[in-house]
Design a protein around this nucleic acid. Structure first.
Lengths: 338, 338
DNA sequence: AGGTTTAGTGGAACCGTTTACAGTCGTGGC
DNA sequence: GCCACGACTGTAAACGGTTCCACTAAACCT
């Protein structure tokens, strides 16, 4: 492995000059620069990142902390982040807490302090005040995705408005008997998201003077399978809603499958609306509130990068950036039958 | 930020002793060790990884290169790897090539050479001979997932056997008119996987004396949506297969949706079998050949770690480790109707 | 013409660890 | 009583870059 000394020697300059030539910092004559560059190429020289990082304090490495990777939303977010980073030569360190507080603490307490990271993107993390303090005291840029994370910059969608929009769509079609599939099975995970989407649902219902039946609010774990099972029970009851708002597309698809298995036609006998914009929704004809997780990830990365480039951000910055969502009407919703 | 000097000073020992105490390398008196440990704790000392890596040459960081993160298989593989690594204090650097050869070259050519990585796990990568040579010349452990990658250790399932098993299951039920949904839309991606699963299908068909109809082999892109559309065309034709083997669960679910939309009952009018063991398959009653991507990822990580711990591996190691799959029979397959 | 800037350069300190080396001290063997 | 040995320790040299500083020579002022 060639080092910068080898390059310098081969180019007939000092290591200082070689470094300046390679990094474009400081003045270097055209001739010297050219010789250094050629030497570097011939030697297949690549600067050791660890050495660079140690001296300069910048590692060109940013950490992404999330509770899972094998779920639609997180996969998309990471994709968005990764796409944004690869172009500017940053690398991406992934920390999967698996929703375990133990792991989360280990990551927040130790891993992030090893100075290998220039900045951090926590995704949908349930952070305690102490954890946030600790995170921010690292004195590196932090931009979260999802939220809320009081005190840290975030990028997210308006969960409550999303719930309200979906509900309003159903009410607008004439539905009055509306059930809701929400999250909350795992108290640690998706806590706020669940609550605020349901909040939007409830708000919109009461605004329209409609009642929210407790037994029509299904607590699920955000998977298709669980939602399917619960919806089957719900839809087998004597009284049935005419519409269901599910807090995610996966759960909405579960509801559709359950309805079909029970011989209920969608949307004739049951309207279903979800949230996400999951690709699979298309084949189901699923009406949904589309969010753009890749864009959320990309946006977080961008904000991070500008903070990294610029001096410390002004104080009047937009702390919580809210990205738009979009109602996509397909064939799973219609006016109530009969 | 406290450095090891601060710890040493506080504990009243030299930095050498402090380092030895903290790392458990070399002899240190119990008293000194205890003082150092307390000092470190009180100072919230965490060793700088960049410094450690620079000096020791070991970064406790392993790279995962893959063509996408937002697909079921990759999400699972990464989860398996991450779970395995977090326990032993290794970190995970993620490189998403997005299926672009440009990015792949950048990663293989530059990124991996910056000495930030102790080892590399390429996942489902289509590597040229030159790329493999370059990868191996880094002189660090490499264990791939999926394959084949001639010359590098890999962990994978037997794709061909998987195709054969699925096909045999259908034939065993009495089906003779069998269609296949395969990949291959994107020539770069999933190349081998597609070919070998289809190979298994064709082999099993001919073994049973059955013909493979060209127009019953659907080339799809491994998504539910595309498979759905193609299956709809297939199943609307005058002649219909009585069974479909889809090379992935997502595509199989697309076929089931298409069948239902056309009023064909599954499995009465059409049997469908997939490959993967996708969680969503359960609600579809999907029969499938289950593979365990998390286990594949975990296994790759384990092999890597042992190679990292032990001296260079013996030459007679098992180059390609094949992990088992499992037929899961649910309600999407049955003997042909009538 | 003399004094200041400025482009270009080399040398060396430094980033925060690990680790090779040399040394001190007490202990046991003879 | 001396020597060898082991346990323990401190000092300093790396690791491979970046960056500060001092310096030269040419160019630019007044």
């Amino acid at each position: 492995m060639a080092g910068i000394r080898d390059v310098a020697a081969k180019a007939g300059v000092s290591v200082g000059t070689a470094s300046r030539a390679l990094n474009g910092t400081g003045p270097v004559s055209a001739a010297a620069r050219e010789r250094v560059e050629r030497a570097a190429k011939e030697l297949r020289y690549v600067a050791s990142y660890t050495a660079t990082a140690l001296k300069s304090g910048r590692s060109r490495n940013i950490g992404v902390i999330l509770p899972a990777i094998d779920r639609w939303f997180y996969g998309k977010v990471v994709t968005g982040i990764a796409d944004e980073l690869i172009d500017v030569g940053y690398e991406l360190a992934l920390y999967n807490t698996q929703g375990s507080h133990e792991h989360q603490e280990a990551v927040l307490g130790d891993y992030l302090w090893r100075q290998r990271l220039d900045a951090v993107i926590p995704v949908s993390l349930q952070l305690s005040a102490a954890e946030i303090t600790r995170l921010l005291s690292m004195d590196r840029p932090v931009v979260g995705v999802g939220g809320p994370m009081p005190g840290v910059l975030t990028v997210s969608i308006d969960q409550s408005a999303t719930g309200a929009l979906a509900t309003a769509h159903l009410i607008g079609l004439g539905h009055r008997e509306i059930a809701h599939v929400t999250g909350g099975t795992d108290p640690e995970r998706d806590f706020h998201l669940t609550d605020s989407r349901r909040g939007g649902f409830e708000g919109e219902m009461s605004r329209a003077g409609l009642q929210v039946r407790d037994d029509w609010v299904l607590r699920s774990d955000f998977t298709l399978g669980d939602s399917y099972r619960q919806a089957k029970v719900l839809l087998s009851g004597r009284e049935r809603p005419t519409a269901v708002f599910a807090a995610s597309d996966e759960m909405a698809m579960g509801v559709i499958l359950a309805a079909r298995d029970l011989g209920l036609r969608v949307p004739d006998a049951l309207s279903v609306v979800g949230v996400d914009g999951h690709e699979m929704g298309e084949a189901f004809g699923l009406t949904t509130i589309r969010q753009f997780p890749e864009r959320q990830g990309a946006r977080a990365a961008q904000r991070l990068l500008t903070h990294l480039a610029d001096p410390p951000p002004p104080d009047d910055i937009n702390l919580h950036e809210v990205l738009p969502t979009e109602l996509v009407v397909r064939s799973s919703t219609a006016a109530p039958g009969e």
